[in-house]
């Protein structure tokens, strides 16, 4: 079986699953929250805006820092992986799956890519929701396609280490709650690390997405390097463990 078939199968397994509801509800909630926020205090935000900041910049900052999208995103990634692996646990289908003539590397990679794909969808829907708010509010400035594209792109890349970690966690624990709880703890700790121990941020993957709005703080290039290193480490450890998994 080819890798792309396995990835397609992962998406197919979720056809009637909760993941679609989750992927729609969270961006719908952020869009609604941003719309109400701008409906209520757009004038105030414009008055307090920094020099040269447009309405689109303000919208992005409100979403990322005030609403907390940048901080919470890794937690949502953790929930996505828990839902993906819950399918196998709830139907006890590991035995059937691992008895198929498929290389374990491909199977593990397909889970990782499927989870990452759903996370990308979540990010894209959030950004599209922001654009919708801007159009409904009829911002006077032209749409900043480039900055919004870069914003989405940075998030898509900077979730990779967390995705690798949660792919590993979600398959390691039969109880999917544990992976989600570690995601919760990671996000809570990130709020402490970012503000109290900024020197540790580069090795703390839950904090990376916080800096993807590109406004201040953090050395994203350095984080990008560690993001890659941690992805390789988490993916490698997970794969090593996955290959040793007993199918019985």
């Amino acid at each position: 079986m080819k890798l792309h078939t396995l990835i397609f199968l992962e998406c197919y397994k979720q056809k009637k699953g909760l993941i679609w509801l989750f992927l729609l509800a969270i961006p719908a909630g952020t869009t609604m929250a941003m719309f109400l926020d701008f409906q209520i205090r757009y004038d105030y935000l414009l008055d307090t805006a920094g020099l040269g900041q447009t309405s689109w910049d303000l919208l992005l900052m409100e979403n990322h820092r005030v609403l907390g999208w940048g901080m919470f995103l890794p937690m949502f990634v953790g929930i996505i992986y828990a839902i993906l692996y819950q399918v196998e646990e709830s139907h006890n289908s590991w035995k059937q799956l691992l008895s198929l003539p498929v290389r374990r590397e491909e199977f593990y990679l397909s889970k990782f890519v499927a989870g990452w794909f759903f996370s990308v969808l979540l990010i894209v829907l959030n950004v599209l929701g922001l654009m919708l708010v801007g159009f409904i509010m009829d911002f006077p400035e032209a749409m900043e396609w480039k900055s919004y594209g870069i914003y989405a792109g940075k998030q898509i890349v900077m979730i990779l280490a967390v995705a690798g970690f949660h792919n590993w966690l979600s398959f390691s624990f039969k109880n999917s709650v544990i992976g989600i709880v570690i995601g919760f703890a990671g996000v809570i700790l990130s709020s402490i690390v970012i503000f109290m121990f900024p020197e540790w941020v580069k090795i703390y993957p839950y904090a990376y997405t916080f800096y993807t709005d590109g406004y201040d703080g953090g050395n994203l290039a350095e984080m990008f390097f560690y993001n890659g290193v941690l992805l390789v480490v988490f993916f490698g450890l997970g794969l090593w463990q996955f290959k040793r998994r007993d199918v019985l």
């Binding site: 909760l18 509800a25 909630g29 952020t30 005030v66 609403l67 828990a82």
Partner: peptide, 20 residues
């Protein structure tokens, strides 16, 4: 029965609370 439901609702609704 799906544990992700209360987890997602609990986390999803805690998320915008500081803004509100």
């Amino acid at each position: 029965a799906h544990v992700a439901v209360p987890m997602a609702v609990g986390a999803g609704l805690a998320f915008p609370s500081m803004l509100v």
